[in-house]
Nucleic acid binder design. Structure first.
Lengths: 345, 345
DNA sequence: TCAACCAATGTAAACGTTTACATATTGTTC
DNA sequence: GAACAATATGTAAACGTTTACATTGGTTGA
């Protein structure tokens, strides 16, 4: 076991093992490959022992050259310091590991140019599959994967114009906006605002649509709608908090958790209390919400389930590449807490 | 550009490009490799054009077989849904990307067996280098990397028994405990407790040592020390909160951010106010701390800087593998806020 | 005019596997 | 003991690159 301690010793190959075990390289290869082949148990034993003695580890790169399987899956997310994404990734990685893959998790940081560069590198690595949360939901990069016939699943961010052409796993953004708004309406609120990220990705727009649909059901139309959107920063969130108060609404849907953070900090710093001064429902369940008192009513997205589903869909696609694309949309649930009070006009 | 849309077309190789450009494969290879070779500009142009037309992407696996560079670096952390780790990773990834590498980020989930499995897979992939935050700080797995001569850097979690044998980047745990405690002592506190994770990794123990050293400087000795350690869960943290109060101390060092979360939640839920009822200093700067009011005085660790340093140290080791190991320890700073009040006996 | 050289390109042998195919060894059956 | 199957193992040609080396022309200088 100590052999490989010699500095700069070249890596142990199948040939070294074959020589030590006194067999051919084919035998060694078969011992370490999936494909079964009749083999005298004692010979297999001898090979295994020689390999152990030399510290042989099969070279996955060489192996993928002739064989087809590369042993690498990629997950490319838009922001990986964001717990919403990492929660999905944890299970993706462990499922992939169980299936014998290494997963390379990459971060485009919401930059389509970085995303493209990363995808090109991943294609160069001949990855077996990819789960992609597209930065700013730009489709061209997903097309790259299709062009190079790499099985892929789009996660969380859809391309509305070509929705049914890609394998997709996500949650129901429309429903999350709808549920949040209806929850407030049912509590008697009528002056309800919606705040969120003014982004090129369709998620928040879908939530706004859900908000509008709920408002319409209560015969509240465009002139009573108040939709505040802004950039994805804490300051912008704080600013929305101020605008929310200026609007004089009795309730608000905080439609995106990162901007919601700024909004709630603004409330906290200006002694705006919920639900006394304003009722709020937030879409998302960030870790910091644990500290809010009273606790905030949230719309919870099934992150872990989405991650698992993305992984298993990817494996399906890898097995049957010709399979027509499917879209799997997960519902959200309302976690009711103490940030909404009944409103009697 | 459309050519590769044909389903199941085999991947484009250097040969296809050579044929279309009417040259030899060597010429194509040189066009796409680092090594310069005199080449008629028009020929280079023809090759580039043929490659673009076919959508050629160099197969990194094949390339690494003869050449030496694999193009993959690995980062293996112990918990990747933890922002402390992801903050370090963001910069590691972008630095590695600038240098032309793909980073595969893996998660051992504090399980040495998973860690070993992952490392074996990474070794099989013949990664060019690895940054490792050892799960539970078990050394055998790091030894694997050395055995296979993969340049590596240990990040954040040290092996005390063989500290100087590994390349290491981390922060000064002793100092963080010391600074936090001294800050409280300087504010007049004498009955000071320390709470944290009772872990097999030496980080928290070092912080306890820092706490003790500061206490000794003020002639407070073992009989006045109160060190509470527990498992890494929210419940355990809450429990420590209760024990802290039972101890009747005037101040506490919350020595580990995950257990601190439970402790602070306990305080919040039982109307224990800081700094009125108890002064606290926390080691760490989790995102949720932004919501605490009054704001908590923290010991900040330079996560981003540590990430960058780990990356650049890794590149140094990759360039000069024979280089004697170095250890780079970053100091922490006190971020003073409103959770400590002066204590007059 | 020709040796000597240089610039530009091609040839072919690696790299470490996989796997179709060939061969050797054994056991059955008549 | 010949014929035939299994069963067990080896041979060698891929896979898509890199790169040492060989080759081809064309300049140059004497």
């Amino acid at each position: 076991m100590r052999q490989r301690d010699k500095r700069l010793a070249p890596a142990v190959t199948i040939k070294d093992v074959a020589k030590l075990a006194g067999t051919s390289i084919a035998t060694v290869s078969y011992v370490f490959s999936e494909r079964e082949r009749p083999l005298r148990p004692e010979l297999r034993e001898k090979v295994l022992q020689a390999a152990a003695e030399l510290g042989y580890v099969k070279n996955a790169a060489a192996s993928s050259l002739k064989g087809k399987r590369r042993g690498i899956l990629a997950v490319l997310v838009a922001q990986f310091a964001n717990t919403f994404f990492t929660r999905m990734c944890v299970d993706i990685e462990s499922i992939a590991r169980e299936q014998g893959y290494v997963v390379t998790l990459c971060n485009s940081d919401e930059d389509p140019a970085q995303e493209r560069l990363i995808l090109e590198r991943l294609i160069a690595q001949r990855i077996d599959g990819c789960i992609l949360c597209p930065a700013l939901a730009r489709e061209e990069n997903a097309t790259l994967l299709r062009q190079y016939q790499i099985p892929y699943v789009i996660l969380e961010r859809a391309f509305p114009a070509s929705f049914s052409e890609h394998n997709f796993v996500g949650h129901d953004n429309f429903q999350s906006g709808y549920l949040a708004t209806r929850h407030l309406l049912e509590a008697g609120h009528r002056k309800i605002a919606f705040s969120g990220w003014d982004s090129p990705i369709p998620n928040v727009r879908e939530r706004v649509n859900g908000y509008r649909a709920a408002m319409r059901e209560y015969r509240l139309t465009a002139d009573t709608e108040r939709v505040l959107l802004g950039p994805l920063t804490e300051v912008a969130g704080r600013d929305m908090g101020a605008r929310l108060l200026a609007e004089g609404v009795s309730a608000a849907v905080l439609g995106q958790q990162d901007t919601a953070k700024g909004t709630l900090l603004h409330f906290q710093d200006h002694n705006v209390r919920w639900p006394q001064d304003i009722s709020v429902v937030m879409i998302g369940t960030p870790e910091w919400a644990d500290f809010l008192r009273p606790r905030i009513t949230c719309i919870q997205r099934p992150e872990k389930q989405m991650g698992r589903e993305a992984a298993s869909l990817l494996f399906e696609v890898m097995h049957v590449p010709s399979r027509p694309p499917v879209q799997r949309i997960f519902p959200c649930v309302v976690i009711e807490r103490e940030s909404v009070k009944r409103w009697e006009e």
